[in-house]
Amino acid sequence: MLRIAVQAKGRLYEETMELMKEAGIKLSNAKRTLLIPSKNFPIEVLFLRDDDIPQSVASGVADVGIVGENEFVEKEEDAQIVKRLGFSKCRISLAIPKDVDYQGVNWFNGKKIATSYPVILQNFLNANNIKADIHVITGSVEIAPGIGLSDAIFDIVSSGSTLVSNHLKEVEIVMQSEAVLIGHNALSEEKKEILDELMFRFDSVQKAEGKKYILLNAPNENLKEIINTLPGMKSPTIMPLAEEGWSSVHSVIDDKQFWDVINKIKGLGAQGILVVPIEKMIL
């Protein structure tokens, strides 16, 4: 049995539970339960505060955990990043009052900075030879300059709307963060096998994200050009149609290329284009 620590609530919790569901891992809907075993996979889920997850994995209370990279780096616990998960993306940035004339990082010399991430901030200041007073706050860091508690803040930024509403502007991006799967450094062989299967399932879900499966009818005279236009995993599948001179083409394309590709193959005579969402992708 592999024990995985996850955040007990919030956006990271919701996205983690969605990933588990897409990976075919069934969990009970028990409320206020600290530890829940899976019904169909050899794992149990331990619900914790996000800042407790790195320590729980490092100490072996949990075998692996899903946590924001920012929390993992901040806690400096002895564990390893096993896999980047690509969701709950944000950045950790320095922000100052919007009416301040900012000329560069030297502005922070002698200033007071409010943050919930003193370790990451201190490392940044040391790297830039900046001496500033770090004021540690848990909670609404962004209000600190407005009430005179600090000159600047160092905090998570997603859309930036919270900064705007507090009359702040982002001036230095210190770190990019996303959800990561972290692991204990001394897992047994049995638990490593379970973890490998878990990562295989996660990979299959992630590879399908942003992909579409398309089927189309193509005139054979333009078949080579249409095939060259389609960015398939290896190469498109081609099957002859009952109508002479036509073939059925199957391929996978990325959402980012979708409309550009569709317009090009339509211009080459493709017809009957069918687009299907992909749930899993096994390579």
Rank of each mutant, 00 (worst) to 15 (best):
V275Q: 03
M281L: 15
L125C: 04
M17D: 04
I92D: 08
F87Q: 10
L48K: 06
S159P: 05
I265A: 05
E221W: 12
V45I: 11
S235W: 10
T162A: 13
N70S: 15
Q176W: 11
E178K: 00
V261L: 03
A95H: 00
I43N: 00
A95I: 13
F87C: 09
K266N: 12
Q7T: 10
I153W: 01
K9N: 11
V275Y: 05
P42D: 04
K234T: 15
S165F: 11
I214H: 02
L241M: 10
T16A: 03
K192W: 05
V205T: 03
F258W: 02
L46A: 03
N40C: 00
R11T: 11
N263C: 08
M20G: 07
G65C: 10
V61Y: 11
V261Q: 07
K83L: 12
M281I: 11
I265E: 04
V141P: 08
M17N: 08
D133S: 09
E209M: 08
R32G: 07
G110N: 02
M199Q: 09
N109W: 14
I182S: 02
I173V: 08
E279H: 13
K83Q: 13
T229N: 05
S158C: 07
G183Y: 07
R11M: 10
K280I: 12
G146M: 05
G68S: 09
E279D: 12
I194W: 03
E14H: 11
L125S: 06
G232F: 15
S140R: 13
V205N: 09
E189S: 14
I282T: 14
V100C: 13
P42Y: 07
P118V: 07
D51W: 10
S204L: 08
V105S: 07
S247T: 02
Y102M: 07
F87K: 06
E244N: 13
T138K: 14
E197T: 11
L168C: 02
F72I: 06
L223M: 08
N123G: 09
R49T: 14
V73D: 01
N263L: 12
G139E: 01
R11P: 10
Q206V: 10
M20V: 01
L27I: 00
I262S: 02
E189V: 15
N185R: 10
G60E: 05
I53P: 00
G267L: 00
A127V: 05
V136C: 08
S28I: 06
S28E: 10
Q80A: 14
T162V: 11
E69V: 12
A79M: 14
G10D: 02
K169H: 05
L215N: 14
V61M: 10
G65L: 07
N70R: 15
G272L: 11
Q7F: 06
A152Y: 02
D255P: 12
I194P: 05
L19V: 01
M233R: 15
K26R: 08
L198K: 09
R91W: 11
V174G: 01
A23P: 08
G245V: 01
S38C: 05
Q206I: 13
A208M: 01
M1W: 00
I278Y: 04
P219N: 04
A132Q: 01
E172S: 07
Q206L: 15
A62F: 03
E209Q: 14
